[in-house]
Design a protein around this nucleic acid. Structure first.
Length: 186
DNA sequence: CAAATGATCTACT
DNA sequence: GTAGATCATTTGA
């Protein structure tokens, strides 16, 4: 099904929950979304907290676009922008269960284990070939394809990873029991 | 203009 | 388990 444009205009937490179990493809390579994190403009841990800057400009677009940024100088991270234009909410995609184009992922990552191909934001982007050239692109047009889950999936919830502020906000969501998570839920 | 920081990953002890 | 890699962006002088 083609995602309704209004789906991505909802708040970050709602979209983050709904994206677990979705299928993401970039140029035909991708898989099942098993881990997400929500960030909104009122969240001290969010890039959009404190206003719009040159780097996070695409995070302030209307929901349904990609927001790609470089982390720790080395890695790329892929976000799904959500909420109305100008708000600054997004959902970080942290892990996929690879289902399409496994051979191309292995070639890009240089490893064999399917479990390690996309289990982490930086790994995910390397496996799918995501970089700054995809920043701001709509997710419902090539090379992207994002198919929402047909039915609800069992959800695990927990605190977000790798941040120093807003740690108490339990906005990390995962597919319960999946072994492709970047870290297990308790 | 200079310095610090970060939504991470890999390799090594 | 712990430290290093590596750089764009942000903040302060």
């Amino acid at each position: 099904m083609t995602p309704a444009a209004t789906f991505y205009l909802q708040d970050a937490e709602t979209v983050a929950r709904a994206l677990v179990g979705a299928t993401l493809l970039v140029d035909g390579v991708g898989g099942l979304v098993v881990e997400t994190e929500a960030y909104d403009h009122e969240d001290p841990a969010s890039h959009s907290f404190g206003g719009r800057t040159a780097r996070n400009a695409s995070m302030f677009r209307a929901g349904g676009c990609a927001y790609v940024y470089r982390s720790y100088g080395i890695h790329w991270c892929l976000n799904v922008v959500c909420g109305p234009a100008g708000e600054g909410s997004a959902v970080l995609l942290r892990a996929l269960e690879p289902t399409h184009g496994l051979d191309r992922m292995r070639a890009r990552r240089g490893i064999d284990e399917a479990r390690l191909l996309c289990s982490g934001p930086g790994r995910l982007c390397q496996a799918l070939g995501v970089d700054a050239s995809q920043d701001g692109l709509p997710l419902d047009a090539p090379p992207f394809a994002l198919i929402l889950p047909e039915r609800p999936v069992p959800l695990a919830t927990g605190p977000r990873i790798g941040i120093s502020k807003g740690v108490a906000t339990p906005w990390r969501f995962g597919l319960a029991g999946s072994r492709f998570l970047s870290r297990p839920f308790r």
